[in-house]
Amino acid sequence: MQNPEQLIHFVVRRIIEQKGQPAPTIENHQRLTADLGLESLDVAKVVAVLEVELEVDPFAQLVAITDVRTVGDLAEAYRRALAGETAATAEPALDASRQRAAARRGAPAAQDAQSEG
């Protein structure tokens, strides 16, 4: 059984091979675009395969895909999602702000602060 980081390396390598490019050994410091030549749709494929395999999607709410530059960033996003982090727990300040805004409107903030379990 591969750990998530090994799986991420395997999937990244497979997507590079599917593009007909020689795939190097995948390491966390490598930049997805500049070093590995992945385009945005290739990264989308990686994320789609990982969602099927790991049954989590960190990019639905927890992490902005634009914050992911390297293989290590990708691995960290999945580590956080698999550890059960949610947008609410990851962003307590933002959550508190939402609560205050909802209180000003006189409405509960449950929907605004909704998180993915």
Binding site: A44, V47, A48, E51, V52
Partner: peptide, 8 residues
């Protein structure tokens, strides 16, 4: 489309 991307 995520599923379709994995299928190609």
């Amino acid at each position: 489309s995520k599923i379709m991307l994995t299928q190609g």
